[in-house]
Amino acid sequence: MKGFGIIKGLGVTLKHIYDTYAEDFKAGRKRYYNEAGVRQRMTHDTKGIFTVNYPEERLPVAENFRYVPFLVYEEVEGEKVPRCTACGICSKVCPSQCIWITRAEDPETGKPLKTPAEFAIDIDLCMNCGYCAEYCPFDAIKMDHDYELATYERMESNVHHKERLLKSASYYAGIRPTYYALEQQAKAEAEAKKAARRKPREGQEGRERPDRKERPDKTEE
């Protein structure tokens, strides 16, 4: 019969409409404007329409989610001390070459210091690939979760300088708890190993090596 195919198809559309309203009726207000509701709409058995009403509702971002990079600092006696040692690996692996680093110098001797004097990322160039975070040996640069970066002007405000890039280690622990825990654990293990190694050689004057901790292979984020 001509037209049967169309009617069958319209049945599917009707089912979709029914599903949407039936879900709304069943779940009521629980379905909208709260995190549990949004999460339910992301599961495999969600039914009906699952649009998220941004900005009132937001999709919860995954822990692995990556947006533009930021620099992690540790708070030491009220001062922000960046974990970054200005080794330059991130700017070397960066596919779009959007990272500029100026290494700090000792004002008296002129020798390079293990900290950046300036660190800039042009987020217009940044392709959010995550290589900088992946290959940083000091866990100093990480990918952010904050995706709302709209500005009124695109030249100056889209170059993120050091002050803007620095975020605290506790912020990092908040957005990536799993990786933070793994890194802390690895760090503690490396410390313990180092302490155990140093003990027998006590008294001997060894050259201080940079605090390169051993990283777990699987979780380089």
Partner: peptide, 21 residues
């Protein structure tokens, strides 16, 4: 023309940002 190969040399250790425009 920025250079034959990446990484470009002006990024580190004396990087100074510049916009492509």
């Amino acid at each position: 023309y920025e250079g034959e190969f990446k990484p470009y040399e002006d990024r580190w250790p004396e990087g100074k940002t510049s916009k492509i425009e």
